[in-house]
């Protein structure tokens, strides 16, 4: 967040805020506050689903643990590492936003988008394995899970696909946003500070949601 110090003295006299604002500082504060409010809204969006999951997990602990054991902990773990790393690279991009660091900014944004894409690819591999193993209770496909937990395992996998699917959708949007930032940076558009910070806030939220999704789904079978 190094640019913070840069805000009171906007770089370049030509810098002008949007017409509804009096100053760049006011505009920056409005933009950031708007993003934080949006993130609060997003947290409530996933919160509803987490709440439902937690209630069912408490109601059917054995079935959920058994079903959780069928997830690929290794791939899930790798994905967690990838996403956490991408948050780091996003922060580094944010840190490199001042004009003199343009190359670093472009580099870190590209790495961030790449890591996000790798995450989605690995997720896709997981999905295809689960589809092949008849663990996807959607589109009326056969669902194969040993008794006595067949029914509630269905419930678990409903949550699994709903949660990871919605998360993947958010990550996809995040990748698009980062790519847009990347394009702006390559074209040399000035004053990307606020934009990159706000894109970063969103990226970190998507990461943060995964930090909850991963233990809830993958580690349910492996609690102490």
């Amino acid at each position: 967040m190094a640019y913070r110090n840069a805000i009171p003295t906007p770089p370049g006299a030509e810098a002008k805020p949007a017409p509804q604002f009096d100053s760049l500082r006011q505009q920056y504060e409005a933009d950031t506050l708007g993003m934080w409010i949006f993130l609060a809204s997003e947290i409530l969006f996933f919160g509803g689903l987490f709440m439902a999951y937690v209630i069912y997990r408490a109601a059917y602990p054995e079935a959920f643990e058994a079903a959780s054991g069928r997830l690929d902990l290794l791939l899930g773990g790798i994905n967690t590492a990838i996403l956490l790393t991408s948050s780091l690279t996003m922060t580094l991009a944010d840190d490199a936003v001042l004009p003199r660091n343009r190359k670093a900014l472009i580099g870190w944004l590209a790495v961030t988008a790449l890591l996000g894409t790798v995450f989605l690819v690995i997720k896709g591999v997981e999905y295809s394995v689960e589809f092949a193993a008849h663990l996807a209770p959607i589109f009326g496909r056969p669902f194969d899970f040993p008794e006595p937990h067949t029914e509630q395992a269905r419930l678990f996998f409903s949550f699994y696909f709903a949660l990871t699917g919605l998360h993947a959708l958010h990550l996809f949007i995040g990748i698009v946003v980062v790519l847009i930032m990347l394009a702006l940076a390559i074209r040399g558009v000035p004053r990307l500070e606020a934009k990159v910070t706000i894109a970063g806030l969103y990226w970190h939220l998507v990461d943060l949601i995964w930090v909850f999704v991963f233990p809830l789904l993958y580690l349910a079978a492996h609690h102490g």
Binding site: G48, M51, A59, P137, E151, Q152, L155, F161, A162
Partner: peptide
């Protein structure tokens, strides 16, 4: 659309949870 059954009583889903949400 997909047949995911989070409120489906047949698989142990709770219709009252829907009402809470």
């Amino acid at each position: 659309i997909f047949g995911i059954g989070i409120f489906d009583p047949k698989v142990g889903g709770d219709p009252v949870l829907f009402q809470h949400l």
